[in-house]
């Protein structure tokens, strides 16, 4: 299951040819450090290979977007970054993923998932109160020593998710009473509560209306100061608006990875160009 590549390799290995061209230069990110790096990652569901040799670097405090048609493997790749695919039966992963230079399979899984938070496609609050939703991660990870600290942490997370003002008077009400957009921001607050270093967003706006979507996009801009953000989206305009880097996936392969402007304005690969210009098909 684990990897063969020595850890030292990651500092040096240069990206696959596709993303060699002026990596990040166009976005002015040359000073950025690498937060996550995947090397030659393969993933199988039973006998079906869903990912083929994905290698990629994800930079700290930047937004990285994955685009591509449905079933291209972008979500699957996202879910390998916090080892959530392991919860699915009959799957196999090989290749390396390093978080701050450490193999994620060497990190205790609940610790890894605390450090790498995730927000899902459909908002999925727990059948608990708003407060308890946000407090859940703090409680299980033993991160709040007393009631006052817990309240403080919950408030802070809700503020970071730009939800505090809307829910501060009804913290003890069911989370299911909130609107779809609010529920999704609650899920973001829930993920933020445990202070993740990386936040994985799996098509977080696909079920939301344009106004709710705009709020989440604003949030992504604000969060990038404190988090590394990886977002899967089927919406190319969204990737263009929020992301510093963009990766294009097709049929389980990473076709191209580069600065977002390069991908959208001047892609190196024909497939990428066809997809971003809407000629894909």
């Amino acid at each position: 299951m684990q990897a063969s590549a020595p850890k030292s390799q990651m500092e040096l290995t240069m990206p696959t040819p596709t993303n060699s061209s002026a990596l990040g230069a166009s976005e002015g990110t040359s000073a950025s450090t690498i937060k996550l790096s995947a090397t030659d990652l393969n993933f199988h569901y039973g006998s079906f290979q869903a990912l083929h040799g994905i290698s990629m670097k994800i930079y700290a405090n930047r937004v990285t977007a994955f685009i591509g048609p449905s079933g291209c493997g972008k979500s699957t790749f996202l879910r390998t970054l916090n080892r959530l695919n392991e919860a699915v039966r009959n799957t196999r992963v090989d290749g390396t993923v390093l978080l701050d230079g450490q193999d994620i399979h060497d990190i205790e899984v609940s610790e890894l998932r605390r450090r790498v938070g995730m927000v899902f496609q459909r908002s999925n609050p727990f059948p608990k109160s708003i407060f308890e939703n946000v407090a859940y991660g703090l409680r299980i990870n033993g991160m709040a020593s007393n009631r006052a600290r817990l309240r403080e942490a919950v408030e802070q997370s809700l503020r970071r998710a730009a939800l505090w003002d809307e829910v501060k008077d009804k913290l003890n009400q069911s989370a299911y009473g909130l609107s779809g957009g609010q529920q999704q921001r609650l899920c973001i607050a829930r993920a933020l509560a445990v202070n993740p270093e990386v936040l994985l967003l799996d098509e977080p706006c696909s079920a939301l209306d344009p106004i709710a979507t705009a709020k989440i996009e604003d949030l992504i801009f604000q969060l990038k100061d404190s988090c590394t953000i990886v977002i899967v989206t089927h919406n190319m305009q969204q990737a263009a608006r929020v992301a510093d880097f963009t990766g294009f996936f097709l049929l389980g392969r990473l076709i191209e990875f580069d600065g977002t402007t390069v991908i959208f304005k001047n892609p190196a690969k024909k497939e990428t160009e066809d997809y971003v210009t809407g000629r894909f098909g």
């Binding site: 205790e108 609940s110 610790e111 299980i140 990870n141 033993g142 991160m143």
Partner: peptide, 10 residues
Amino acid sequence: MTSLHTLRRK
């Protein structure tokens, strides 16, 4: 956060 906490959970 302590490893004791993690150990107990496991």
